[in-house]
């Protein structure tokens, strides 16, 4: 069955760059959200296996999404994709339950490495 992937970023360019970087042979269904609120709507509808999450977004940011998912008993894999490359930002999101952190600008190679490392794509 296809894996449901949700791409959350307020920037249409960043979403496009991420989607282009996804492995072409990965059987997925992609949906998109432009902020945390939309991401949670999609999550609550129960159709998210893997979430690529930006941190700096209007209305509801990535940290708030992670906090909410944790409160609601997180059961999707969250990979944070952010330009905020401070070590503390990476620590924080991993403490909040994100499995990995990818720095922007995203590359196909960098993304493939993370997906492989966490056994998401073999």
């Amino acid at each position: 069955m296809a894996v449901s992937v949700l791409v959350v970023d307020d920037s249409p360019i960043a979403r496009k760059m991420l989607i282009r970087a996804l492995p072409s042979d990965w059987d997925i269904e992609i949906s998109q959200a432009t902020n945390g609120i939309e991401a949670l709507v999609a999550y609550r509808a129960g159709k998210v296996d893997v979430m690529f999450l930006d941190l700096t977004m209007p209305d509801m940011d990535g940290y708030q999404v992670l906090e909410t998912l944790r409160k609601e008993d997180l059961n999707c894999l969250v990979i944070v994709v952010s330009a905020d490359i401070q070590e503390k930002a990476q620590e924080r999101v991993q403490n909040l339950g994100a499995i990995a952190f990818i720095r922007k600008p995203i590359t196909a190679e960098g993304l493939a490495e993370v997906l492989k490392k966490y056994g998401i794509v073999v």
Binding site: S11, I13, A83, D84, I85, K104
Partner: peptide, 13 residues
């Protein structure tokens, strides 16, 4: 905006 976001992330770090 996205390019500025990346530049800003480097400066912030």
């Amino acid at each position: 905006q996205e390019i500025a976001n990346i530049g800003m992330g480097q400066a912030g770090s």
